[in-house]
Design a protein around this nucleic acid. Structure first.
Lengths: 116, 116
DNA sequence: CCGCATCCCCTGCGATACTG
DNA sequence: CAGTATCGCAGGGGATGCGG
């Protein structure tokens, strides 16, 4: 195998909010629209809808509509989407360690500036 | 731990070419500028430079300059950057499987269109 | 409650040309 | 060989308002 398939994985995560949505859906198995919106500070309705649609289109997330008033829509990960869990966990773990590393870097840089 | 650190990991990979660069640098331990450029079809000099600079700034990649004419610059991953290897592998592996899943999805959709 | 439509801005990226 | 400098555009994404 020669070609790089990392981008194929990244395509799924691409977009400013997709990973946050997935992160929430790994913590809570099933969530309603506004529940997600509240859980993700800063996201707009437009973006939440758009990103969810893309995830749905990629068969990562499933959308369940209850025909009632007021409307009720539930989102959850598909069985296939759940195959992303280990990956998300790994990224989360690496990210946590990197956050620490970042602080060290910043500390060093402010030292340099201080000495300059 | 409550906050999502997946984005911290994604920040490293963000940008159209970063993952490709890292992918090459996992295959070949150390590469020269033009060697990378040749290995990554479609990338421009500007982008290659920019992305390398960011990776360098994040302490993922190291840049070694030889003071000679013609110039010679070598890029390689830092020890710290190598901690990304397992993650990149995992993404590559998931991506490979997903590429197959994608074909099934497309097949289903063309079926739907055909029946419509 | 859930979502679509519209407008607009900003930046990521490409193309191209120039230097030590 | 290994970069910088400049220009320009497409589209991702924010703000806002309407609709079932």
């Amino acid at each position: 195998m020669e070609t790089c398939k990392v981008d194929t994985a990244l395509e799924i995560l691409m977009g400013k909010w997709k990973h946050r949505i997935l992160f929430e859906l790994t913590k809570n198995d099933v969530m309603r629209f506004n529940e997600l919106k509240r859980a993700i500070p800063g996201i707009t309705q437009k973006m939440l809808t758009a990103q969810l649609r893309e995830l749905e289109h990629h068969d990562i997330v499933i959308r369940k509509v209850y025909a009632q008033i007021p409307p009720k829509v539930e989102y959850s990960m598909t069985e296939y989407g759940k195959s992303l869990h280990p990956l998300l966990d790994a990224m989360h773990e690496w990210g946590s360690k990197h956050a620490i590393h970042l602080k060290e870097l910043e500390a060093n840089e402010s030292l340099k500036e201080h000495n300059a």
